[in-house]
Design a protein around this nucleic acid. Structure first.
Length: 196
DNA sequence: TAGAGGATTGAT
DNA sequence: TCAATCCTCTAC
């Protein structure tokens, strides 16, 4: 399977890219432990709306990686507890990103269960904070190139448009009217979707 | 430089 | 429903 090219990430419509990422495979190779999973749930974020860290194009020390070109990892700490993994999209100075919210485990499941301290695969990657832990993703991967580094995304399974469910994003009530944007995408009836 | 709050999760 | 937990951002 082929690693996604730079051009995939440069599309100017982040919601379009978020939808296209469904079915793709996220791979990490951390300390010799290769793990991967099929992306089954995503959310889009754009500088044009309040839910985004780079709203109105405001650059800070934390979000500056979003201002570069697409195809790089944006990892940050949420609630002081969880690391969240995003894919930077669009061209330089068009800060947009796709949050990966859930995966279907594929390879290296033994490492995932070990990292999660459980024997069961059930719901082990069904949430943005959980999948990063299962795949060994942390903030040291912030800014990594998704084409050449130890974290990358490759072609996966085909997802029919009819299988994709569109919904409002989770946890951004503070964004006012922008919280109503239908920018959350997930694969219908998939067992690994995060909480409803 | 201090204070508030967050793109979550799991236990109560 | 609520606490954990700490980094980031904002205001002073």
């Amino acid at each position: 399977m082929k690693v996604l090219s730079r051009s995939f990430y440069l599309h100017e419509n982040v919601a379009h890219t978020a939808k296209k990422l469904l079915g793709k495979v996220l791979i990490t190779n951390i300390q010799g432990k290769k793990t991967s999973g099929i992306i089954v749930e995503t959310e889009a974020y754009s500088y044009k709306e309040r839910g985004c860290h780079a709203f109105k194009g405001k650059m800070t020390e934390r979000n500056k990686i979003m201002f570069g070109k697409g195809g790089f990892a944006y990892v940050y700490l949420c609630y002081g507890v969880h690391q969240l993994f995003n894919v930077v999209t669009n061209k330089q100075n068009k800060p947009e990103a796709v949050l990966i919210r859930a995966l279907q485990p594929l390879e290296g499941t033994e490492w995932m269960t070990q990292r999660m301290q459980t024997d069961s695969l059930t719901r082990i990657t069904s949430g943005p904070g959980k999948l990063t832990k299962a795949l060994g993703i942390d903030r040291t991967l912030n800014g990594k190139d998704l084409i050449t580094s130890e974290v990358c995304i490759r072609e996966g399974v085909k997802v029919n448009n009819k299988q994709i469910v569109t919904a409002t994003r989770i946890g951004i009530d503070y964004a006012g009217p922008d919280a109503k944007l239908l920018w959350r995408f997930y694969i219908k009836d998939n067992n690994w979707i995060s909480r409803t």
